[in-house]
Design a protein around this nucleic acid. Structure first.
Lengths: 183, 183
DNA sequence: GGCTCTTGGTTCAAGTTTGAAACAAACCTA
DNA sequence: TAGGTTTGTTTCAAACTTGAACCAAGAGCC
């Protein structure tokens, strides 16, 4: 079957997408690194925990909502634990699982870092989008994510290399960006 | 000044954005790694070179269009050079510069990898977007990128941590995704 | 020419990510 | 309930990224 190459407009969109995501990711990482001494992913770990009931989450669930590999999360949590921002606890029901818990210090650090982070997200992204564009972005991204989620519904796509073979947890959760109920 | 927190809709959009970009990047990296034995960035280096006049580009210019640091590019080109896909040449006019040149083997590898890559980009992104959404995506991303480009035009933003202090080359170029004139 | 500043590129160490094991606990199922 | 599979997590080495430091060459100035 002959390749369906990208149309000129698709190419433009794709290039713009690559540039924008690169720049945005860089900007956010840089800001957080400077102001909070941690990369974006680590901040996201804290933020997600802060939003979870009782500030605790099973490692796998956390990895799932963050869309990262378990191994990557292990690394992040290990580092955050060393810094005292997160603590690991054993799960009572399932002895295989371990639970990451946000410590008080972690909460404090998060709340100190959140304003700068949110400000950056605003300045780099939302301040440049019209309200309609925010809606468009949400819809576009939701669609993409749904397509790449474990449980794709389209026919005949069992083992293509771009689909994660990880288990798909059916429960949808909502990762936060800012601390739960900031003061 | 009190923080302007994200509105519920902005939060939804931001979460969707993070999920989508993570999943998409993962999917593309995985496909390219499996089928071409290289991460996305390396492929992009080849693709950009293939589209440049005479298949050669100054390191700095390449880094600029790819939106990556010079050091990161150095690493990538070193690896690609070891594999024989790219060659370095000295610049005749400016003895500081070095030029990355796509070799014949590099061209061959790129042309072999391109169909699968484009197919993945289609399957994961464009097949899920309506024509209007492609336009919207382009516009949104172009805006974001423009804002983060070195030469921002807004007032009073000289040294915020999220702005790159790298020099901004004024000449705009257009990075390709697929090889120049694929066979 | 000599000085200083900027630009182009690499190097290096420390940090992060990847993917393939390894392990242990839970879950079948015959 | 023994054996086999699945699930939750970590470990490890290799690959990649980051940012600061370095070096060399161009540019501007006296």
């Amino acid at each position: 079957m002959t390749t369906r190459w990208l149309t000129p407009q698709e190419q433009r969109a794709w290039r713009a997408y690559l540039a924008a995501t690169h720049l945005l990711e860089d900007a956010i990482d840089r800001q957080l690194q400077q102001d909070a001494g941690m990369p974006h992913l680590f901040y996201s770990v804290l933020a997600n925990l802060s939003d979870a009931p009782d500030r605790r989450l099973r490692m796998t669930d956390l990895a799932e909502t963050l869309k990262i590999t378990r191994s990557r999360l292990t690394y992040a949590v290990t580092r955050l634990e060393r810094d005292g921002l997160v603590r690991r606890e054993d799960c009572r029901w399932d002895k295989r699982s371990s639970i990451a818990v946000l410590t008080d210090e972690g909460t404090a650090v998060l709340e100190r870092a959140a304003p700068g982070h949110v400000e950056t997200v605003r300045a780099t992204l939302f301040d440049r989008l019209s309200p309609e564009q925010v809606g468009q972005l949400e819809e576009i991204c939701t669609g993409i994510a749904r397509g790449l989620q474990g449980g794709g519904t389209e026919p005949g796509a069992e083992d293509v290399p771009w689909r994660r073979r990880a288990s798909c947890s059916s429960t949808e959760s909502s990762p936060p960006v800012q601390p739960r109920r900031s003061p």
